[in-house]
């Protein structure tokens, strides 16, 4: 009885502590939503809650032929999903090699891959641009996807996870006549679902939020992604705050949805392998 009482007290305390924290984090988001729904004349009047709901900004973002928002969302989906699936595949393969196989130079190679994580993306962006431009890839889906099909971070994450599996698992399957690819497909990948889910969500969000690379390598609206769509709504000399906030809300809804569905995996996955590795 006492234990139960203490437990519920503990929960209440936690909730009381969490609500202010949640509000602190959510307020900018809620205010964005509120501004996007405000009648234009209320935006600068220190109003928190709109007096009436104004959907004109959303209508404008979707129907105005200048903004192509549906196209941008479609493009971002294609690119983010492709990059996500690509990384899940390539990183699984590499991580498998680094965790279960023995070969010469394995350590050195792994450290080499890890060291690429230290190089900030901005420093290689021009070199990458010149490469893709000389390959004639500019202005295509391929140029948005290809450079991101593998990542050191993904390999590292999955390798750490694979290391938590008992080595005997691999040996036993070998004895049963299971080829490496079969072992990977039927044993390792199903077992690494939490880590793969986390990687997938992480990669999806990162790709979704990219701005500089898509801006640099695409020119036409056909291949532009959502983040560029948002900046199209803004002009330094002609601020349309309502429209811009509506754009922000439209763009975060898909990424928020992905996060909500995958958050359990995201948190479990990122933690897994952190203690034993």
């Amino acid at each position: 009885m006492l234990a139960l009482h203490r437990k519920s007290l503990h929960t209440t305390g936690k909730i009381l502590l969490n609500i202010p924290m949640m509000m602190l984090i959510l307020i900018p988001l809620l205010y964005t939503l509120s501004v996007s729904l405000m009648p234009t004349d209320e935006i600068y009047k220190n109003v928190l809650i709109p007096s009436s709901i104004n959907l004109a900004n959303y209508r404008n973002a979707f129907t105005n032929p200048n903004y192509h928002f549906i196209r941008f969302i479609f493009n971002s989906f294609i690119v983010s999903v492709s990059v996500m699936l690509g990384q899940m595949l390539t990183c699984s393969l590499a991580a498998f090699a680094f965790s279960f196989l023995e070969f010469k130079g394995k350590k050195v190679l792994f450290i080499l891959i890890l060291s690429t994580m230290m190089v900030p993306g901005e420093t290689t962006i021009i070199a990458n641009y010149l490469t893709v431009s000389s390959l004639g890839w500019l202005d295509s889906y391929w140029v948005l996807i290809a450079p991101y099909l593998c990542s050191a971070m993904g390999i590292f994450l999955l390798r750490q996870f694979h290391l938590t599996f008992a080595k005997e698992l691999h040996e036993a399957s070998r004895l049963d006549g299971c080829a490496n690819w079969q072992f990977l497909l039927w044993v390792v990948i199903p077992l690494s679902r939490p880590a793969l889910g986390a990687l997938g969500a992480y990669v999806f969000l990162n790709t979704w939020n990219q701005y500089l690379w898509p801006l640099l390598v695409t020119n036409s609206t056909t291949y532009r992604t959502v983040q560029i769509g948002i900046s199209m709504l803004y002009d330094v000399d002609a601020e349309g705050m309502g429209l811009m906030m509506a754009g922000v809300i439209i763009v975060i809804v898909p990424s928020l949805t992905v996060f909500i569905f995958m958050q359990k995996q995201l948190i479990n996955g990122l933690m897994a392998g952190a203690v034993k590795g």
Binding site: S231, M232, L233, D235, A238, E239
Partner: peptide, 10 residues
Amino acid sequence: WHSMGGVNGE
């Protein structure tokens, strides 16, 4: 190539 967003872009 231009840099006009919002109503200016329209």
